[in-house]
């Protein structure tokens, strides 16, 4: 219809080039931080004997979701170790935990900001829609360009993919705090900070935790995709299974991902319930 083609792809490429040229030190610094976090998680988990780590995970599950779930988690973890996927399991766990840590550190403040400022909310909503609906593969390209191949771009891609639900649900949770509770804290002379930390956040906590839970689930779904740029872990095993048409080993790695998903889901779902004793 137009006599020329809008050079959207050129613009985007130019933009990415510009960022690489000008923000190189920033990306290098970020790479170091992410690498450090992943290594810390990984080394920490590798340091422990597999059985000890399994018992720790089972104990946390017990506290958050009851003994039946804990028992199931423990047996499942024994299975993962038995099919020789323990190392990959730990790598993936380190990647997901790092991404989730970053998601919480960045997503929570943004969610709070969006909840307390309508204009911010207005700007952030379409950005979140964009992030969530953009095919996940598309994130891989800039991630590789900014961070090279390996674990770090995998974490970054996972982070971008997993952050929207936490921002959304933090925003929602705070906005849903009953108006009377806000009025009550105002009437008692609460400052903005007191109101946030003593009323809004605690009351919104179950919803916020649902956001954490959702972002972990999304992060796990990104694990296999991230393996395509060399993130390693269970995703790499799944990918190898696909490429070599080894149904059995691909399925095993997939099952290990599911086991991790279920355990993390039950633990974080439990967080949301601990103090959720009733309505206001």
């Amino acid at each position: 219809m137009l006599p020329f083609r809008i050079p959207l792809r050129d613009w985007i490429s130019a933009g990415v080039d510009y960022l690489i040229d000008n923000l190189g030190p920033f990306f290098d610094g970020l790479t170091n931080v992410v690498q450090f976090l992943v290594n810390t998680f990984k080394d920490g988990m590798e340091f422990l004997h597999p059985l000890v780590l399994m018992l720790i995970i089972a104990a946390i599950t017990w506290k958050m979701a009851g003994w039946k779930t804990a028992l199931m988690a423990f047996v499942s973890l024994l299975l993962v170790e038995n099919i020789e996927l323990w190392q990959a399991f730990i790598e993936t766990m380190a990647l997901v935990l790092t991404a989730e840590l970053l998601v919480i550190l960045v997503g929570l403040p943004i969610g709070i900001w969006a909840a307390t400022n309508d204009r911010v909310n207005l700007v952030i909503r379409p950005v979140l829609d964009f992030m969530q609906t953009m095919p996940a593969f598309v994130y891989l390209i800039p991630a590789v360009m900014f961070f090279g191949l390996g674990l770090v771009p995998g974490v970054i891609a996972t982070f971008i993919f997993a952050i929207p639900p936490l921002i959304r649900l933090t925003n929602l949770g705070i906005r849903q705090v009953p108006k009377e509770l806000i009025e009550a804290s105002d009437a008692f002379g609460a400052t903005g900070r007191q109101k946030l930390f003593k009323v809004q956040l605690p009351v919104a906590m179950p919803t916020v935790m649902a956001g954490v839970n959702q972002s972990i689930m999304l992060g796990l779904s990104m694990v296999v995709i991230a393996a395509m740029i060399g993130a390693g872990g269970l995703g790499a095993d799944v990918l190898r299974g696909i490429q070599r048409l080894q149904i059995g080993s691909g399925f095993e790695a997939g099952l290990a991902v599911v086991i991790m998903a279920i355990i993390l889901d039950r633990i974080t779902a439990g967080f949301g319930k601990v103090k959720n004793l009733g309505t206001a």
């Binding site: 009953p178 009377e180 009025e183 009550a184 009437a187 008692f188 609460a190 959720n276 206001a280």
Partner: peptide
Amino acid sequence: IDFRKEKFSGMVFQNFAILPH
């Protein structure tokens, strides 16, 4: 905010507005 702390015994609400946590 200071005045509210000093002069008002806060408020009592229809739906109680007490903190669930």
